Amino acid sequence: MLGATVRWQGGGVDVAAVVEEKWGLGVQGVEELTGGMNSAAWLVVGDGGPVVAKVVEAGDLAFGAGLELAGRLGDAGLVTGRPVLSRAGRVVERVGGRQVGVLEFVEGVPLEGAAADQVAIGTTLGRVHEVSSTAPGGLEDWLQLVTQFDEWLDLEEWIRPAVATALDGVRELNGLSWAWLHGDPAAEAFLRQRDGTIALIDWGSAMRGPILYDVASAVMYAGTAEHVVRAYVEKQQQAADEIESGLEAFLNLRYAVQAGYFAWRCSTDVRTGLTDPAENRKGLADARPAFGF
């Protein structure tokens, strides 16, 4: 599909034209990719091989930071789907009120829920945090990833008290280690390549924050802490006590993020990444049992 146009959240971007003009890549075809909740993505086949073009809203502050993080981790030897710089030397170009990035295409089979896959996830996250370790920042500012949804927390009566309890639990913790985080390490973001290497892609939720947030997110997706945590601690042994004392609080926080995020999507009828609008309600309902409601 030459000249394919993204029709997303009320706007359009001519992917082929942008890639050719801004990145100087000859385009032979464009194929839509599915699955992004906050972005539209396209496989672009060009003269130099396949790349991925991603389009997000202009106000998405994590997009550029995530691409830059993927680049730094790629420099350290991880496979991340690192950004391809535009002709102007930028990881992101602004086009028609959107942000566009072009990424290296990474082949591989997405991990699933098997124990061996959970071990691979924990090991890979440990490596990411080892490379991207950073000094702690201000916790209250970081907690805006939850408090930004305050306007929509009264959608259902259980949401606000659940979020408040989760926030209080994290505020009680001390001595948190920080790194640059993936932000949403679901199993499908980890790809096993032909040589057995595990790639980690989809950096659109990347942020600087407590390592426990990534660990808790991976545990939430896995449904159990056993394999993820054991493998992570083998890479990050100094984090063992921190995980033991703080994982439960960060699991609650991770579910609070999910509750707030889907309360916002339900309230504002955001449908990006969905085939059925009812999936927003399901995402909200999936967070509720974590709080005993």
Rank of each mutant, 00 (worst) to 15 (best):
L173K: 14
L173Y: 13
G175P: 01
G175S: 04
L176I: 02
L176M: 14
L176H: 01
L176C: 09
L176V: 01
L176P: 02
L176D: 00
S177A: 13
S177L: 02
W178H: 00
W178R: 03
W178S: 00
W178Q: 00
W178E: 00
A179L: 00
A179G: 03
A179R: 01
W180G: 08
W180R: 14
L181Q: 06
L181Y: 04
L181R: 02
L181P: 04
H182E: 04
H182T: 03
G183K: 10
G183S: 06
D184T: 06
D184M: 11
D184E: 12
D184K: 07
P185D: 06
P185L: 05
P185H: 11
P185G: 10
P185Q: 11
A186Q: 11
A186C: 10
A186P: 00
A186K: 14
A186S: 06
A186G: 06
A187N: 12
E188L: 03
E188M: 06
E188S: 14
A189G: 12
A189Q: 15
F190C: 00
F190P: 01
F190R: 00
L191Q: 03
L191T: 03
R192K: 14
R192H: 09
R192W: 04
R192L: 04
Q193W: 06
Q193V: 06
Q193R: 15
Q193M: 14
R194Y: 05
R194G: 13
R194A: 13
D195H: 13
D195K: 09
D195L: 12
D195C: 12
G196F: 05
G196C: 10
G196Q: 14
G196W: 14
T197Q: 15
T197E: 15
T197P: 06
T197L: 07
T197Y: 10
T197N: 14
T197F: 07
I198P: 04
I198C: 09
I198A: 12
I198N: 13
A199E: 08
A199S: 14
A199F: 04
I201Q: 05
I201F: 02
I201P: 01
I201E: 03
I201G: 06
D202C: 04
D202P: 09
G204C: 05
G204V: 13
G204A: 13
G204Q: 11
G204P: 05
A206I: 08
A206V: 11
A206Y: 11
M207D: 13
M207H: 10
M207I: 08
R208L: 10
R208V: 10
R208K: 13
R208W: 07
R208M: 02
G209N: 01
G209H: 01
G209T: 00
G209M: 02
G209R: 00
P210D: 05
P210I: 09
P210Y: 07
P210R: 12
I211S: 08
L212I: 06
L212W: 07
L212H: 09
Y213F: 14
D214G: 10
D214I: 08
D214H: 04
D214P: 08
V215I: 15
V215Y: 10
